[in-house]
C-alpha cells in the first residue's frame, strides 16, 4: 500500500482539505474526544532549520492526541553533521517513529526524504519551495473566518519572492473559482514567474494584480496576508536591510481596508505589522497560529488513520 505523505500544498484536493477542516473543527469543539486518538504512536520531528511555531505546534498537536514525540532540534546535533545522507537518516528514523515531520533548508528535500521514508512524512518546509502545513493552517483560518474560498480577493504583501508560505497558499487558493490575487511587493521581491505560471496552469481564470502600493491593494481585499522579509533568504545583508521596512501595516493604512477584511501572518513578525494592530478585530494572526495546531492534529490523525486503512 502506498504511504501517504504531505509534501506540497497541492497533494490534497480541495475535497480532502474540506475533510481536514471538518475534522479540525470537531477537535476544536470537542478536544476531549481526541486525547487518546494517537495513543501508542510516535512522531519524529527533524528540523534542520530554525523553527518555533511549526515544531512546537506539531509537538503540541501530537501530545494533545495522546502520542509521543522524539526530536532532533538542529542539523548540528544530528548525524547529518557527521556526513550522513538524508536518505539514511530518514530510513533510520522511520524505523523508530510512525510519522516524520521534517524541515530542511534545501528545496525538494521533502520529496527526496519521502522516497526513502517507510512511514508518512510531512514537509515542515523545504527551503523556499513549500510549506504545506502552513497552507493547511492558512486555508483553515480563511475557512473559519470567511466560510468560503470562491470569489475571495486575497492580498499578499511583503516578500513574495522567497516566501514559501505565499507560494504554497497562492497555488492552493488558485483551485477555487473566482479567486483574485493582489500581489503587493517591491520589484525585487515579486512573486516568481514560475509561481505565476503555475497559478495560470491551475486556473486560467485566476486574476493576479501586481502593485507596489500597499494602500491600493487593501481597498478591495477580503484577506490581507502579510509576510516577513526573511533575512535567511538573502545572501546580501544590505539588500535585506533596505527591503525589510518597505511595507509596514499601521492603523493609518488599515483605514483603507474593509471592516470585514482579516489580517493574517504566518509569524514570526518583525516590523511589518505595527503592534497597535493587534487590538484590531481584523487581526487574526494569533488565532491563525492556534488554528495551526488543530489543523496539524487533524492532519496527523488523517495520515495515521489512512496508513492503517481507516478514515479520518
Amino acid at each position: 500500500m502506498a504511504i501517504n505523505h504531505f509534501l506540497g500544498s497541492l497533494d490534497f484536493s480541495p475535497e480532502k482539505y474540506d475533510v481536514l477542516f471538518s475534522l479540525a473543527s470537531r477537535i476544536i469543539d470537542s478536544p476531549s474526544d481526541y486525547t487518546d486518538r494517537c495513543r501508542g504512536k510516535l512522531m519524529a520531528t527533524l528540523f534542520y532549520e530554525p523553527s518555533t511555531r511549526t515544531r512546537l505546534s506539531f509537538e503540541a498537536a501530537m501530545l494533545r492526541l495522546g502520542g509521543g514525540v522524539i526530536s532532533v532540534a538542529s542539523a548540528k546535533s544530528s548525524s547529518v553533521s557527521k556526513g550522513e545522507s538524508l536518505g539514511d537518516t530518514i530510513r533510520t528514523v522511520g524505523g523508530y517513529a510512525d510519522l516524520i515531520v521534517m524541515r530542511h533548508p534545501k528545496e525538494g528535500a521533502a520529496l527526496l526524504a519521502a522516497e526513502y521514508s517507510p512511514v508518512p512524512l510531512i514537509n515542515g518546509g523545504d527551503g523556499a519551495r513549500e510549506h504545506p502545513t502552513q497552507t493547511l493552517t492558512d486555508l483553515f483560518t480563511i475557512h473559519r473566518f470567511k466560510g468560503r474560498f470562491d470569489g475571495l480577493t486575497v492580498a499578499f504583501c511583503g516578500d513574495l519572492r522567497y516566501g514559501r508560505t505565499v507560494h504554497s497558499l497562492v497555488k492552493a487558493l488558485a483551485r477555487y473559482s473566482g479567486v483574485k490575487f493582489i500581489l503587493i511587493s517591491p520589484s525585487e521581491l515579486r512573486l516568481p514567474e514560475r509561481i505565476v505560471r503555475e497559478v495560470n496552469e491551475i486556473n486560467p481564470e485566476a486574476t493576479l494584480q501586481e502593485t507596489t502600493s500597499m494602500e491600493d491593494g487593501l481597498e478591495s481585499a477580503d484577506v490581507l496576508y502579510m509576510t516577513r522579509i526573511q533575512k535567511e533568504r538573502f545572501f546580501n545583508e544590505e539588500d535585506y536591510i533596505r527591503l525589510r521596512d518597505t511595507y509596514i501595516l499601521t492603523e493609518d493604512k488599515l483605514r483603507a481596508a474593509s471592516e470585514e477584511m482579516i489580517v493574517m501572518h504566518p509569524l514570526p513578525r518583525v516590523t511589518e505589522i505595527d503592534y497597535a494592530i493587534d487590538a484590531d478585530p481584523r487581526a487574526v494572526y494569533f488565532e491563525q497560529a492556534r488554528f495551526g495546531m488543530f489543523a496539524r492534529m487533524a492532519l496527523i490523525v488523517h495520515l495515521l488513520s489512512d496508513k492503517e486503512g481507516g478514515d479520518a
Binding site: S85, P105, E107, L112
Partner: peptide, 13 residues
C-alpha cells in the same frame, strides 16, 4: 544548477 536544490548536496540523490 539551482544552488538551493537538495540534489546539489545529497550524495544519494
Amino acid at each position: 544548477k539551482n544552488p538551493r536544490c537538495v540534489i546539489a548536496i545529497e550524495r544519494q540523490g
